[in-house]
């Protein structure tokens, strides 16, 4: 077993894990932060996307032990301090950027990663950045709209495909 400690959504946490424990399993099973989803478990779908030291990673393809000492952010820490949805989450709701919602935690975390580095992405930027996040419901169009809206841009300019 490996002893580890990290900061998750601003709070210090610690635990004992096997070498093989994945970061997503530590988050879900040890910390009970089940908002981070496991979709494919093969690093294709992006439902497990979290931020480690400020960048998006697939937590199903990172060992928990690799995150020892890291600053981790998950979907549970994304809402505003008063509990209301943050700008990205609200945009996904406003623009119907989800149906079943399974991919949404990963989509929101990937979007936050994009907007941090590129505050006003164009449609192509958004689609390229969400390359590793799979949604089987929406056909992506409303997700792209939601991301553009979250960046404060006019979504009416996005033509229907």
């Amino acid at each position: 077993m490996t002893k580890l400690s990290m900061t998750v959504n601003g709070k210090p946490v610690s635990g004992n894990v096997e070498g093989r424990t994945l970061l997503v399993d530590f988050l879900r099973q040890d910390l009970h932060l089940t908002g981070t989803h496991v979709g494919c478990d093969t690093s294709q779908c992006g439902a497990c996307t979290v931020h480690v030291n400020g960048v998006a990673v697939k937590s199903c393809t990172m060992l928990a032990a690799e995150a020892d000492g890291a600053d981790v952010a998950t979907i549970e820490g994304q809402a505003n301090a008063d509990g209301s949805l943050n700008v990205i989450q609200q945009a996904f709701q406003d623009h119907h950027g989800l149906q079943c919602g399974f991919c949404t935690p990963g989509m929101v975390m990937a979007t936050a990663d994009l907007l941090k580095n590129n505050p006003t992405p164009n449609e192509a930027d958004v689609r390229h950045h969400l390359d590793g996040n799979i949604c089987r419901c929406t056909g992506y169009h409303n997700i792209v709209k939601a991301v553009l809206a979250a960046s404060g841009q006019d979504v009416d300019a996005v033509a229907a495909e």
């Binding site: 992006g46 960048v55 990673v57 697939k58 990172m62 990937a110 990663d113 390359d131 590793g132």
Partner: peptide, 9 residues
């Protein structure tokens, strides 16, 4: 290569 999250690791 891959996607953004893969490129970060």
């Amino acid at each position: 290569i891959g996607d953004p999250a893969v490129r970060n690791r």
